[in-house]
Design a protein around this nucleic acid. Structure first.
Lengths: 222, 222
DNA sequence: ATTTAAAATGAGTGATTACTCACTTTACAG
DNA sequence: CTGTAAAGTGAGTAATCACTCATTTTAAAT
């Protein structure tokens, strides 16, 4: 079950990797430079002239490909948002979860491992995303719509199913999701953003995290 | 016990409230305007002219009181950092926790309720703090030093004591802290930043959060 | 009423900003 | 080789930026 899910999850990750297809060499350099500078200094504090300089390109070239500076930002972040939630939007999402003997624990483990790898490979862009979502209504709206309708509904059903099975405690599904997501994202932030310099036993901490969530959500006995 | 701790926690909050003492009327207006604009558009995207305008003050007045724009930022955020960690730096911190029959649960409840109230009253500044910590080395250093030496060490000891008592599971204390803090901060972010428009049953969610942490950290039986 | 220092002002500073555009270079189809 | 459209250029633009400073206003002590 776990293997099946992981395989399925990882599959979709490489779907949209036909980007950079029609891109010029210099355009790619611009994107890479922009990602570095944006993540380093923040969007508002980054100047197009600095991006051009780091990309080894004339400033005008940037505006050939991207109408505005904000357009450049969106072009960087938007595809990553899609990829981020891609596994949860899969049409086969439900099928996999309705397999014979799935456990919430397996679901968690698959999600954590898979999305951790994704985070590791898209650290800078995710950092930009987190930083700019509060200030860019476009991004915010895009994100809320994607997450809200597609992902939240599906995961809510997953939670409700596990609750009926008696696998996890009967509290509002949104609370279950909140507690799970908090723990997982907290793990990611600590691992990659806040204390990346610590030598993490990633395998151990992953299991501790899953164990924490599972026991935290397991039914109570008097 | 719980009452004792809460009282003690809340006491210290009002200690440093002798600010705004030697401040001019216009200086206060500047601070308030800056807080609003910074939290709304982000530090880098805010202009001193806009702050001056919103404060009903000449732009030069800002620089009478604050050498630079960054100085204005620090003057806003730094005191809030101190207040934020104030309860954990108290000299009587240990005494309270070593009282007769303290439970980790009581400790959590006191901290959550108290710091939640603090968050509610300092939402905008905390938002600025979160946003700017990655980009302001001064703030980052100040924060890390305060938290790292003072708070982390103390809480680590608290955790270790509960572990010896058998109240919570025997895993690395840092992991205990990570999991607890993730859950609590996740609660705060969801409540105040991400979905403040939802009508929260704050009392219920607080207890769910405590319950989740306690069961997640309780010793395991085979 | 006079003195005096702090508070406040706002026009002015050079630097930097995102962005434009007339022009040159490149790449490739015929 | 030639024609042409796309890619790339960089000097130039007005606007805005954080910050200065000579001057005026305010307020409190004498």
């Amino acid at each position: 079950m776990s293997e099946m899910m992981e395989q399925w999850l990882t599959e979709l990750l490489n779907v949209n990797d036909k980007e950079e297809a029609k891109m010029t060499e210099k355009q790619i350099k611009i994107l890479k430079a922009a990602v570095e500078i944006f993540s380093e200094k923040g969007y508002a504090a980054s100047s197009t002239s600095e991006i051009a300089q780091k990309a080894g390109v004339a400033e005008g070239t940037i505006f050939r490909h991207y109408k505005t500076k904000k357009d450049l930002l969106i072009s960087i972040v938007a595809p990553t948002v899609s990829k981020l939630i891609a596994p949860f939007v899969l049409k086969d999402f439900n099928k996999v979860l309705e397999a014979p003997y799935p456990k919430y624990e397996d679901f968690l483990r698959a999600v954590i491992k898979n999305r951790m790898e994704f985070a590791r490979n898209n650290l800078q862009i995710l950092k930009i995303l987190i930083q700019e979502i509060p200030f860019q209504p476009d991004l915010r709206e895009n994100f809320k719509q994607s997450i809200g309708k597609q992902v939240l509904e599906r995961i809510t059903k997953v939670v409700e199913r596990y609750q009926k099975e008696g696998t996890i405690i009967s509290i509002p599904p949104l609370s279950v999701i909140r507690l799970s997501v908090s723990t997982i994202i907290g793990f990611f932030l600590a691992r990659f953003i806040l204390f990346p310099e610590l030598d993490w036993d990633e395998e151990l901490e992953t299991e501790l995290t899953i164990d924490f969530i599972m026991h935290g959500l397991s039914p109570r006995y008097e």
